[in-house]
Simulated scan of single mutants.
Amino acid sequence: MDKVYLTWWQIDRAIFALADELRKNFMPDVIVGIARGGLIPAVRLSHILGDVELKVTDVKFYRDIGERREKPEIRIPLHGSLEGKKVAIVDDVSDTGKTLEVVIDEVKKAGASEVKVVCLSMKPWTSVVPDFYVFRTDKWVVFPWEEFPVVVRE
């Protein structure tokens, strides 16, 4: 699968652009970051938007590039009520959309009054088109916080 490598500078510019749109169109009371890929964007958005409350959930779906589990599994559930809160769910990419579907359901069960999905990128085949995203690609996105392959010369 083709890959696109993003830099820290590109990610920072993308997160600031997302924050600007959130301020104008949907200022959240709570940000829910999806571990692992959504945590850095979620933390940055929380700070940029004025220390918006941040909650974390962990959902595992991928085992490796192109290798998924049968269905997403919640490993760290949301804690506490979101009753009457406007919630922005943040992840790095909306690929199949299955992880986001699970988290949207959990956030609604916790009582959120409004839910929006915020991602850096989305794939054209996703079942969940984010309410806010920066770019669309059919490539595997490698974010700067992920491991780059290391070549060892023998």
Rank of each mutant, 00 (worst) to 15 (best):
E106T: 00
V43H: 10
I89C: 01
C119R: 01
I74A: 10
R153P: 13
L82W: 08
A88V: 00
L82H: 08
P149L: 08
P28H: 05
R44E: 14
G80V: 08
Q10C: 09
V117K: 02
T99E: 05
R75G: 07
E154Y: 13
V90R: 02
F61D: 12
K116P: 00
I76H: 13
D138S: 15
I31H: 04
D138F: 03
V52F: 09
L39A: 07
V52W: 06
A17L: 06
C119W: 01
V93K: 02
V150T: 15
G38K: 03
T99N: 04
F148R: 14
L18N: 00
D105I: 00
R136V: 13
Y133D: 04
D2A: 13
A17E: 14
A19V: 01
A19W: 04
G84V: 08
E67K: 15
K139G: 04
V129M: 07
R44D: 14
T57E: 10
K86H: 06
K108A: 06
F26A: 02
W125E: 11
V32W: 05
I11D: 01
E106V: 00
V152S: 14
K139S: 08
N25R: 09
F135H: 11
I34K: 02
V90S: 03
T7M: 07
Y133I: 02
F135N: 05
R23V: 05
L39W: 11
V150D: 13
L54H: 13
V4E: 09
V107A: 05
D2S: 15
V32H: 03
L6M: 12
E53Y: 12
V59E: 07
R23C: 04
W145C: 07
L78M: 11
S121V: 06
R63K: 14
I74L: 13
D95L: 00
E114A: 09
V56S: 12
S94C: 03
T96R: 02
V87A: 08
A14S: 14
R63A: 11
F135T: 06
V102Y: 10
P130K: 04
V117G: 00
A17I: 00
I48R: 07
S121L: 03
L82P: 07
V32D: 01
V52T: 15
K71V: 12
V52Q: 06
D92G: 03
I104H: 02
P144F: 03
L45P: 04
F26D: 03
